[in-house]
């Protein structure tokens, strides 16, 4: 009886606090242009991987150098664009994190969109691929691994950005 009363009181308090806070925005707004640019750069990346799928030689690297620079630049610009978006109610995320820390929870909410880390991962992958290509060329097996890595990270970025369209 006493436990039920306590639970009801807790629920009432929770509902009251939500009521006082009103609507919140805990993640950045959906950016249609950013999402569109992401899908475009994704198509360019897959096209590039298709062109080198049989492997490369370091002698032919100059033919690809500009493509590497172009793709890395575009991906880094998108990471920057993603990171500069504000989160209107970031202080509520801080309160949630304070609660999680006080409860000894190790998973905290970040105020940076996760797509930033995924795009930075793609940029790093392309830079390593460029260095290897220039140094000794790429085997077909290495190209497959670079490509799948980019696909994984791009799926993360695209899924998150699409999810923001709520």
């Amino acid at each position: 009886m006493r436990a039920t009363c306590l639970a009801k009181r807790s629920i009432t308090l929770l509902l009251f606090s939500i009521l006082l806070t009103g609507c919140v925005q805990l993640a950045p707004g959906y950016d249609k242009e950013l999402y569109s640019d992401l899908t475009e750069v994704n198509a360019s990346l897959l096209g590039f991987f298709s062109s080198v799928s049989m492997g490369t030689t370091k002698q032919s690297f100059p033919e690809r150098e500009d493509t590497y620079h172009n793709l890395i630049g575009r991906v880094e610009a998108l990471a920057m664009q993603s990171e500069t978006r504000p989160i209107p109610d970031a202080e509520i995320l801080e309160k949630i994190n304070d609660y999680l820390i006080a409860s000894d929870r190790e998973i905290l909410f970040e105020d940076s969109p996760p797509s930033v880390a995924s795009l930075e991962q793609i940029s790093g992958t392309l830079q390593k691929m460029r260095e290897t290509d220039e140094d000794r060329g790429l085997t077909p097996g290495a190209v497959k691994i670079f490509k799948n890595g980019v696909v994984i990270s791009m799926d993360q970025a695209l899924t998150y950005e699409a999810f923001l369209n709520r």
């Binding site: 805990l26 993640a27 909410f109 996760p114 995924s118 991962q121 899924t159 999810f163 709520r166």
Partner: peptide, 17 residues
């Protein structure tokens, strides 16, 4: 790690909704 971070980001959006 980025997969886990993305899941947390998706969860944040769900909590907001």
């Amino acid at each position: 790690l980025n997969f886990a971070k993305t899941l947390r980001g998706l969860l944040t959006v769900t909590i907001e909704k």
